[in-house]
Amino acid sequence: MNVINKLILVFLASIIMSCQSGKIEKEPNLISVSILPQKYFIERIAGDDFKVNVLIPPGASPETYEPTPNQMTDVAKSVAYFRIGNIPFETVWLGNLLEGADNIKDVDLSKGVELIKGQEKHGDHFHEGGIDPHIWSSLKSVKILSANLYQELIKMAPEKKDIYEKNYQQFISEIDELDNLAEFSLKRKQGKSFMIFHPALTYLARDYNLRQIAVEVDGKEPSPTYMKQLIEEAKRLEIKQVFVQKQFNVENAKAIVAEIDGEVVVIDPLAEDWLTEMKRIIHILKN
């Protein structure tokens, strides 16, 4: 969507919110979130006590998705918005989403996570860019995120504290079990390089001392020169797989694997069944 269309969408949405101001009734158990894994985290702790409104639908990208006016109205009905922290969707749209939402609690779940600066490419060199938003690709970061979420949920339903604490501890135990397995199985892979189209596994790579090589840098597809460099590096490092997030185009990855006699591996860190997908990704990396 171009800038003019985006402005039109914001204008129309603002009209809708203005017209409905004071008329939208809050749904006391409705929480809005940005991505599907957040729904999973909430349900692991609170079961079905809350209705979770996910703004970015399955198959859509947090880098480019644009909410509809109806979604803005749904946010206005919510009692809380739990943001993931730094994804482009939130940076661009959250102000508009919350502007017409009276008495909504805005919670940044990334509080306490050690954030990573992304890379930006200029010519033939890289330098530090903005914050890499993909904290949910890290088991260790999700433990922090879940602790923040748990504290907010028991504030919203203090009578359920004992139940939520039991569920929270069980969830953290399962994350710890997978984290310990990853620490053990990836120990011999320390320093290993893997190639991925969109740099969605930055935090996971930091956790286990792996090196992520991104095909797309700073939201831009690779130039022919950079593609050649990637192919040469993949050959030098004997990389035979290129990861592609489900929400992104696979054509550049196919071009690389054709040159290295490799394969494209589709992953989905945005899957609703977050823990199962993280197990799959770690299993692939350890082989």
Rank of each mutant, 00 (worst) to 15 (best):
I24S: 09
G22S: 03
Q20Y: 08
G262W: 08
D268P: 10
T202L: 00
E238S: 11
P199R: 01
A13T: 08
I175M: 11
E27R: 11
K240F: 14
K105D: 00
F126S: 06
E152L: 15
V79C: 08
E63Y: 13
N86F: 04
I284Q: 04
E63W: 04
V266E: 13
F50H: 04
I172K: 02
L201Y: 01
A182P: 02
D48C: 11
K279F: 07
G130K: 12
K220G: 09
A234L: 11
N103Y: 14
H134D: 03
I42W: 04
I196N: 03
E99D: 08
W274I: 10
L30P: 05
I281S: 04
M156V: 07
K286H: 09
I260A: 01
P69I: 09
I135W: 00
L275F: 06
K26V: 06
V264A: 06
N287I: 12
L30A: 06
K105F: 02
L186I: 09
N29M: 10
S223C: 08
L186H: 12
Q190T: 07
N86H: 14
V244A: 12
S34H: 10
N249T: 08
T64M: 02
D207H: 10
W136N: 04
V54T: 10
E216H: 12
E251N: 13
G22L: 10
D108A: 15
N180L: 07
T276V: 07
G22W: 02
Y208W: 09
K187D: 01
H134I: 09
D74R: 10
Y164C: 08
N287K: 15
L285G: 06
E27G: 05
P199V: 07
A60K: 15
D176R: 15
V265F: 09
D102W: 04
E183S: 13
L139V: 05
L204Q: 02
E128N: 15
I8C: 03
I231F: 10
T68L: 14
K51Q: 13
W93K: 12
V54A: 07
S34K: 12
D124R: 15
S193E: 00
R236G: 01
M72L: 15
D268F: 07
P269M: 11
A214C: 08
I56N: 08
K279G: 13
I175R: 12
P269K: 08
H125W: 04
L181S: 06
A80G: 06
D102P: 10
I87K: 00
F184I: 06
V92N: 09
V54F: 02
